[in-house]
């Protein structure tokens, strides 16, 4: 049963990836694209966690944690760039 649930979940998250990618390509403004990137990294965490359960390996968790940290820093840096035109003050 878990395998069927995982298959459904994989397709849903992949569909989420496609929708986010569409927004990333279409824009229309810079904040929209940053929001799409932000959503993409959260979707990537979801996909990695699912893959970890599917393969029964806890190693993927470390990657998910790193993506969470780096993605947040990236979003903040991009927003800062839009707000001030400069990242390092």
């Amino acid at each position: 049963m878990l395998n069927i649930a995982l298959a459904i979940a994989f397709s849903l998250v992949t569909a989420a990836f496609a929708l986010t990618l569409w927004r990333l390509l279409r824009g229309p403004s810079a904040p929209d694209r940053i929001l799409a990137l932000d959503t993409l990294y959260i979707n990537a965490i979801a996909l990695l966690v699912l893959l970890g359960i599917h393969l029964g390996s806890a190693l993927y968790f470390e990657a998910a944690l790193l993506i969470a940290l780096m993605g947040f820093v990236g979003t903040v840096a991009l927003c800062k760039y839009l707000l001030r035109g400069d990242i390092i003050e």
Partner: peptide, 15 residues
């Protein structure tokens, strides 16, 4: 797992 994936999908759908 299903609920989690569904919410992830709905979030991106909203986007």
């Amino acid at each position: 797992v299903i609920i989690g994936a569904l919410f992830t999908f709905i979030g991106s759908l909203g986007l």
